[in-house]
Structure formats: C-alpha cells, structure tokens
Write a protein that binds this DNA or RNA. Structure first.
Lengths: 150, 150
DNA sequence: GTTGCGCATGGACGCCGTAGACCAGCGAAT
DNA sequence: ATTCGCTGGTCTACGGCGTCCATGCGCAAC
C-alpha cells in the first residue's frame, strides 16, 4: 500500500467504473499496471467490492432510523451480528461504548414498515430494550475518504 | 423505474464494475439497452454514482464514532450540513427525532484524531453539547438493498 | 388505418480488459 | 563484484466491451 495505491483507491471511490487506462493516465502508470494493483488490493482485502450509490427514496425506502440496542449481560457481538443480518432493513450495525450496547441503522419503506422491523428486532431474545432515533433528513453521506498523499 | 430497472440496480450494487453485456444477459436485454437504462437512472438521480467499498482500517481509519449533537434552538438543518461537510472525518450526518437534534458518523485515524475532530465539531457555534458512542466493532455494513422484484 | 412515440435490437468501430513475454532495479547471498 | 531472485513496471496482441446510429416493433391516440 503505497501512495500510488492510495491515489488509485481515491479515484475508484469517486468513480468505480473508471477504466484502468483512465486511472493509469492520472497516476502515470499503464493500464495493466493499474489492473495488477487493483487485483492485489482486492485480494489483500483493502478493496472489498464495487457498489452503486443509489437514492434510497427512489427505490422505495423513505424512512430510516438509528436504534440503540440494550442487551442482556451475556450477549456477544457475534450474536448481534447474526441477528442483524437476518433483517433486510439493517444497513449498518455496530457495538458501541456508552449507555447502549449496539447501534443499528435501519432503512424501511415507511413508518409502518419501520415499526414492524423494529418489533422484529425487539423480539430478539437478547434485546432488553431499544431507543430509536428516526432520521428526519440525511444531511451528509459519503464514502470513507482516502487520505490523498501530499 | 420498472422491475427491470430494479434488477439492474440490484446487480450494479453488488458489482458496480459488471459489464453491460453481463447485466444484459441476466435481465434478458442487450448491452446498449442496459446502458440506456443506466444512463437514464443516473440523470434521474436514482443512481448517484459508483464507488468502491474499502476497508477503512486498511487506509488508516481505525477509529469511528457516532455523535449525538444537541443544538441551540434556532439551528437549521442547512447549518448543520455545511458544518458537517467542513470536517473530513464526517462520513454521515442526519437530523433525528428524539433527545438529540442530529447524529453524526465520524471516522478518524485513532482516538487522538477522533478527540480532535470532536473538539472541532463541538466548537461549532450552534452546538450546545454532544454525546458520543465510540464504535467498538463494525458488525454489519451493507449498501441499501434493492427490493428484488418477485 | 396511420401517425407518432417509446423502447428495443443489430451492426460497426474504436477502445478496453486481460494475459503473456520481457525488462529494469534492488537487496541478499556467494 | 557478481549473480540470483523478487518485485513491479512496460509492451504487445487479441477477444470482448462500450457506444453511437439506424432500424424495427408494439401500442395508444386520433
């Protein structure tokens, strides 16, 4: 992972469909050289995949919430992980320090759907209680920035 | 936005570098037809871009936190937006219902960096106080799912 | 019926992805 | 100092892909 790799990652994270030749022109490398680096970054797990940024409301997810989970004493992160993966509404889940044990990011079609997802989440055996923050508006949402070298 | 569009979006969100021909084969369309649909989805704002999923720790962001923001009475979402955008550590920001006014998702190099970013955030004139949840581990993180037709 | 529109296909051309052969630089071992 | 092997680049070549344009089909409105 040198400075060139970082620049390649930065370029790919602004446009994942850029051609290797295009990227190569910007980092002064040939297309095959760029491809080799990208392949390596993928096998090394630095690049985990390529995805599309979509507008959630355009595909029917108009409601979103962050839910703090309070769990029973002997709950492991692994338990929370498998539970969270079971629910398609979960787009993010994290164990956190502070009052709550975990924070779950939910996207749902509407309030009704959100309520139903929340109910399902609360039915998990290790959940003792929850505290929800309904998202009123998304202000910022961006991919992890890559520190641009110099 | 018909069912085919949704399938195309779903395919692109699992692999944004898939060729149009590949996608076309899966949705029974020719490559030019797929491209036209993707172009339309982009101009319609359904597809906002293509990005790369990277492992944050691999590029030096090992610490992350969610921060609840408590703001002065007359704070507008727009104010919070411009403030949040100023800080490169902010990867997400939302206005929320509940006790707090906003929730900010931060990524930083380490605890020291996080503390410094938090301090900068707290220095914003409209912030009266904050409550932080440090992320202990990322359990789930996935792109917005697209409801697969049938 | 026919006109017009939306939306697909087919073909053509140039660029892209990808693999293989080859080469330069460099550190370690002889 | 020489040599070996490794890393990581370029060049080349070919098959497939992106992209544009012309064409054709189905359908609704008049």
């Amino acid at each position: 992972m040198d400075a060139v790799d970082q620049r390649i990652i930065a370029l790919l994270s602004t446009d994942a469909r850029a051609s290797y030749a295009e990227i190569g022109a910007k980092v002064s490398l040939s297309a095959p050289a760029v491809k080799r680096r990208v392949d390596r970054l993928r096998t090394d797990g630095v690049i985990k995949g390529f995805t599309t940024i979509i507008e959630p409301s355009a595909v029917g997810w108009t409601t979103e919430a962050f839910v703090e989970l309070f769990c029973t004493g002997r709950t492991t992160p692994a338990q929370i992980t498998v539970a969270a993966r079971r629910h398609p509404e979960v787009v993010g889940a994290y164990t956190v320090s502070g009052e709550a044990d975990a924070l779950v990011h939910l996207r749902a079609a509407d309030i009704g759907h959100l309520e139903q997802a929340l109910e399902r989440l609360r039915a998990e055996p290790f959940v003792t209680s929850t505290r929800s923050m309904i998202v009123l508006s998304r202000l910022v949402e961006r991919p992890t920035p890559v520190p641009a070298p110099q």
